[in-house]
Design a protein around this nucleic acid. Structure first.
Lengths: 198, 198
DNA sequence: TCAATACTGAACCGATTGGTCCACAATTGG
DNA sequence: CCAATTGTGGACCAATCGGTTCAGTATTGA
């Protein structure tokens, strides 16, 4: 159908590299040359494939969310385990990722959330990131609500509060990882942070 | 002694304004014109008074630490209250500040910690910020150690873990505030986060 | 084979970046 | 009063910013 020369680079791979740069440096801390160096393409290829820096960032955020953000919740639905175990495994899964030696430290979504307050993010990015965080809270709220209905959790605290607590922990662990904490340290913090659920 | 024209602006006040800009936008997200606009001085005055952008940032971090960072620990030493109450008041004091309508949302130190991993921060800044975080952990560790010695706290968890937990909470609350959480929401999270201490 | 298509690399754009310099104004202490 | 000192504002700097344009080239389907 569509004739013409084929792209000489793997678009998915280039986007992955771009995402890693944003993850490391943040949006305002990343220049076009940072991106083209990491992606091993030149500017015009970047623009024809991804639009511009801002649109590339939005695509990088989406890739991050799908590849590194949403997977951890799987741990919450492994119903052969108790609720405290599932929550612990959920947080440990996050902790492993944000301290992985193969990846930038911390969490791109958490870093980006910190950048919302200034006006340095591109169009739609702030809105997208807020929506992703809100989605996390909503799905965690739903999760805790159902666990309470199942009788796995006393209803002293509202599901919404518990969801906000978990999101707060995620943020805190991510910044701690950026600050140099390793997996061991985060695991100790996690073990203490979920005593209330036991 | 020193002759010469006097500065026509208040240096402390200008530094405060600069700090607020860094707090809002982050270091790479802040330009010199952002700074000179907020400080209401021009570039040469900025350079003669503060050195350059990087040195100004370091001074802004110091100001933040002294004025907004260290004050909350006072709550921990109000010995007429119980340990859980003191920890709760410590976190509430932080939560009030990071959601204050008079100030940028969140915490400048937390934001800056997220920026360490890239190489966008000026000389010494990354080191200074790491040292401040480490100081927080050390003093909190010392605090919990003494509370255990006093018998106010069981020794199931190590003081260092408890200190890391509190720092993680601070980070998490700060990013949550950046994400739009208000004082009410943070208070609910705090109430749940310290159940282990009761 | 060949016209149509789409990627590539480099030149180029105006704007802004952080930073310097200097003539001049203002204030000081002697 | 006056020389010494210091701050001020604006001109100026090279470098980089994000972004565009385009001729040339490679690849496609017909």
């Amino acid at each position: 159908m569509t004739a013409g020369r084929n792209r000489s680079f793997d678009k998915d791979d280039a986007l992955e590299q771009a995402m890693l740069v944003f993850w490391t440096n943040g949006y305002p801390g990343t220049s076009l040359s940072d991106l083209t160096n990491a992606m091993e393409i030149n500017k015009s290829s970047l623009y024809s494939a991804f639009g511009n820096k801002g649109k590339l960032f939005n695509q990088a955020i989406d890739l991050y969310s799908n590849k590194y953000g949403l997977v951890h919740t799987d741990e919450l639905s492994k119903m052969e385990k108790t609720l405290p175990e599932r929550i612990r495994n959920f947080l440990l899964s996050i902790a492993r990722m944000i301290t992985s030696s193969n990846l930038p430290k911390g969490c791109l979504l958490c870093n980006s959330t910190s950048e919302i307050a200034g006006n340095c993010l591109p169009d739609n990015a702030a809105k997208n990131i807020s929506a992703m965080n809100q989605h996390t809270v909503i799905s965690l709220t739903d999760f805790f609500q159902k666990e309470q209905q199942k009788g796995n959790l006393n209803d002293k605290f509202s599901p919404n509060t518990l969801a906000n607590y978990l999101l707060t922990l995620q943020f805190g662990l991510a910044v701690s990882a950026r600050n140099g904490s390793d997996m061991e340290e985060l695991e100790e913090v996690i073990n203490f942070s979920i005593v209330q659920f036991e």
